Simulated assay, not measured.
Amino acid sequence: MDQLAAMRAFIRVVEAGTFSQAAESLRMPKPTVTKLIQSLETHVSTKLLNRTTRRVTVTPDGAAYYERVVRLLGELDELDGSMALSQAHAKGRLRVDVGTSLAVLVIIPALPDFYARYPEIQIDLGVTDRPVDLIGENVDCVIRGGNLSDQSLIARRIAEMTFVTCAAPSYLARHGEPRHPSELKSGHHIVNYFHPRSGRISPLDFAANGETFETTGPHLIAVNDSLAYVTAATAGLGIVQAPMFMLHKYIEAGKLVRILQEWSSEPANIYVVYPPNRHLSNKLRVFVDWIADLFARNELIQMRV
């Protein structure tokens, strides 16, 4: 038995909750993972997992073993990382997940610079606005804006987004320009954004002179993708409120017009997030540092209203 391979397989099964997901994330056949776990249980003379047709749960002995194995393998990875000559030798595969607009407008255009520094790192970039299960999907880190729903995760703040409210000239020609956010409740349409998992609609929020206002408003269309959200606005389907980095080029080109400029919207932080029990490997460390530097230097992200 390859004990290290069996330990890593055990950790993945515990974190993923099923042998199938663990096998997929490890890129191993499911029977191989099953055999590794069986060999490990024989080796330690203890039942580590309870198996059902739908789910795998951890026995009390398995839970104790898991905690110690996570620490042990983390120390082993740290030892291996300390032997690296420098960050320039960082290599391996990284699974990163990022929202659509940040990927298309900020990260992907800058990746040639990253690969010039770290040519031996392979990035599998999941581009989606949906929430991601970092543990179950074996994701090394995600880059997300807004409030963090899972406080157990480790988050590094890398930037702040400022929001603007806009509409297409064709929309304003038909409906007129609102002078107060309360006007959005009747006589206007909002392009609503609903969260991919919950379906909850994100409201537009406004503040000025101590007055606050929040609305989802009537809509012709609601979407769950950030690029679709902006496209609906430029097509004249309604009013949108989005980060400046997403809308700037459309405002500059005259495809969108800023409205309600005397009203501000609450800014939102952007974070790099990774699991607390995921060892910050050399490859992940250099990527996180690079992303933080990229966002600190990026003109679109740093643009203020």
Score class of each variant (00 low, 15 high):
224 N>I: 01
277 N>I: 03
110 A>N: 15
212 T>D: 03
229 Y>S: 01
64 A>P: 11
255 K>A: 02
175 H>F: 06
137 E>P: 15
295 F>I: 04
55 R>H: 13
49 L>T: 09
13 V>T: 08
74 G>I: 04
175 H>E: 01
141 C>W: 09
20 S>Y: 15
28 M>N: 08
241 Q>I: 02
205 D>M: 12
75 E>T: 10
108 I>Q: 08
223 V>E: 02
136 G>T: 12
240 V>Q: 03
112 P>H: 00
94 L>D: 05
56 V>Y: 10
185 K>N: 12
118 Y>A: 02
119 P>V: 00
240 V>F: 02
10 F>T: 14
121 I>N: 14
288 V>S: 04
303 M>W: 06
100 T>H: 11
277 N>P: 14
204 L>V: 04
79 L>E: 10
84 A>W: 13
86 S>A: 13
165 T>R: 03
128 T>Q: 06
185 K>I: 03
275 P>K: 01
132 V>Q: 12
205 D>G: 14
195 H>K: 15
4 L>D: 09
112 P>F: 00
273 V>R: 12
135 I>T: 11
104 V>M: 12
138 N>S: 12
102 L>C: 05
57 T>D: 07
107 I>K: 11
174 R>A: 12
180 H>C: 01
126 G>L: 05
298 N>V: 03
63 A>F: 15
50 N>A: 07
216 T>I: 09
184 L>D: 00
187 G>N: 11
260 L>G: 02
44 V>E: 05
150 D>Q: 13
41 E>L: 06
196 P>H: 01
127 V>P: 14
134 L>Y: 13
55 R>V: 15
76 L>H: 15
68 R>N: 09
